[in-house]
Design a protein around this nucleic acid. Structure first.
Lengths: 224, 224
DNA sequence: TCCTGTCTGATTGTCTGACAATAACGCTAG
DNA sequence: CTAGCGTTATTGTCAGACAATCAGACAGGA
């Protein structure tokens, strides 16, 4: 009778982790910057154990790194990471594309709706974070076509890493119009059932994303 | 000069998590059984915070579940979980198979060596846990062909869930000889470069694993 | 100059103890 | 038999403590 009722059970640890995550995605912490337990606990008015648990979550998510006896630091994406991420994206998302015919209507519309939403935002919104978020939703939807929650969770993890990487170079983002075109073409091919061509388009799209991101990172790491 | 020297940095938390994991894989804890913090800390002679961190790791791994204010319990695999796992396996491992030609010699030999090792163990070893371990190594190797550490990590996570599921029904394990045949055929097709046929063989192999596992679980859950 | 040993301060890893909030269980009264 | 009420067990969170470890400074010796 009351199936649709839900109360959010947000623990302190979750809120702390979410807060730090937001700061990371907003680019407020430099890559490599240490996340000190006492400083964070005092700043947020919570116990150190709570912060520790939150940091462990971020490490499990892949957006932070723990070095034994040295603590947790904001993850630095190397070009090796970017190419690894790219391989993971290609594998999962093209697996999704290949299963378009077996996907449920909800799973398909998650893709098309996200693409529409991105195209719409691309014209009006200026905040790069919002656009990144919308963009990743499309790719998340593609993984969703596989119908596996576990793969979606894996995709969420690497999308978080991507957001982290993009947080510091939103200015150098590539041609948004080209992105919109590529997404639209992908959706069109999917809906036409031309899955091989769709996979090829996706491959190109992801390859372009990889070079653009790894170029930007390469430039950055030379600077610093 | 000293690049190859390494010291293992094992924290107490890691050891505790590993110990509990072993017990889980050995089937010493029933699915759904709660993992009490105080009891574990007293049994293992460590602080409660340490146990909490270890449990958080197990939850992140997917072998245990946390319910707010109720604690952590051994994960129960539902048939929905099994089919989800199966979809994830198909996606990741066939992605690996499709990239056989691009894989490094090390990545390829990880697959073939694991298959050989499994075939060898199948004749001599009786301990089902050891055999399961060897079996999963093969499938891990297939994911490794994608060349992405992140996908390997995802595969490790779902393999841990599989081991958990298999821990309680090792007796009903299917025909080992058939397994060996299927693996051998898969490796042969791969080395011959007949990737499409290899992918088809893999599909059959994984589909068979799914029905066998979900049958066993279905039977079990009716009993209890 | 370069290396080594030592000192010091900061930080993590771990333990202990505490307490409120929550959930599970049994009891009692109606 | 059910609603309501205590009791108990357990988690979530905090505070404080201490050893182990690390980074940097600094002095002394080859």
């Amino acid at each position: 009778m009351y199936e649709d009722l839900q109360v959010e059970h947000s623990s302190t640890v979750d809120r702390v982790a979410e807060e730090i995550r937001r700061a990371l995605f907003a680019g407020r912490f430099e890559p490599g910057m240490p996340l000190r337990e006492v400083a964070l606990s005092e700043a947020m008015g919570v116990g150190r154990s709570t912060v520790r648990e939150a940091l462990a979550m971020l490490v499990a998510d892949g957006v932070a790194v723990r070095t034994p006896n040295k603590g947790v630091a904001v993850k630095e994406l190397s070009t090796a990471d970017v190419s690894d991420l790219s391989r993971a994206r290609v594998a999962l998302e093209s697996a999704g594309v290949r299963r378009w015919d077996d996907a449920t209507p909800e799973q398909r519309s998650a893709v098309t709706a996200a693409a529409d939403s991105y195209a719409e935002l691309a014209e009006s919104v200026t905040d790069p974070g919002v656009l990144t978020e919308a963009h990743l939703q499309i790719h998340r939807g593609l993984v969703g076509l596989t119908g596996s929650r576990r793969l979606l969770a894996a995709a969420d993890a690497y999308n978080a890493e991507l957001r982290l990487g993009l947080a510091h170079l939103d200015r150098v983002r590539g041609n948004v119009a080209e992105q919109v075109r590529s997404h639209r073409s992908l959706v069109t091919l999917l809906e036409a059932g031309r899955l091989d061509e769709a996979a090829a388009e996706l491959d190109r799209h992801l390859a372009a994303a990889e070079v653009s991101l790894s170029d930007a990172i390469g430039r950055d790491t030379i600077d610093t």
